[in-house]
Amino acid sequence: MPLLKNGSLVDDPWISVADGEPLPAEGAIIVSLTRWQKERANLIARANGLGVRLAAADHAGAIAADLPLLALIALEFPTFRDGRAYSSARLLRERFGFKGELRAVGNVLRDQLLFMHRCGFDAFEVKDTAAVDEWKQAMSEISVFYQAAADGRATAIQLRQQRRPQS
């Protein structure tokens, strides 16, 4: 899977390990929440980066206490219609203060990139390399945002207030 980060395709140093699959001897790995919870002590002992993958039904709160140990959280979109990961992303960023990589995996499509970015995602597993152009378009086609989210973009309300200092 090509990985899109900061608007370009980058090499993915992370290895996503399925449940039941043996852990590679070294390298940064991403495991499921279940595996994390079961093998936590072992995993913490590893030298390289650790990431956890949350299924759409997993609640962000389940991993909150461990966030200082993690450099990456991957959130799954089983289909683009399943919007649970948007909430998880915002909670991880805004409530639990996660600063590491927040990666969208699964059915990640061009027309959802802006929503994902606004909710705090900064890495996207995309289906093909056309994503770079698509990303540019998706980030530029709308420039007005009506609500505060995890991305720090100025909202229409903030801009209006700046324009009218008296109120």
């Binding site: 399943d82 919007g83 948007y86 909430s87 915002r90 959802q112 802006l114 909710c119 009506y146």
Partner: peptide, 13 residues
């Protein structure tokens, strides 16, 4: 209306 317009978290309920 404004708050809900293209709400990034609530567009795929």
């Amino acid at each position: 209306r404004q708050w809900s317009t293209l709400h990034p978290e609530f567009s795929f309920l």
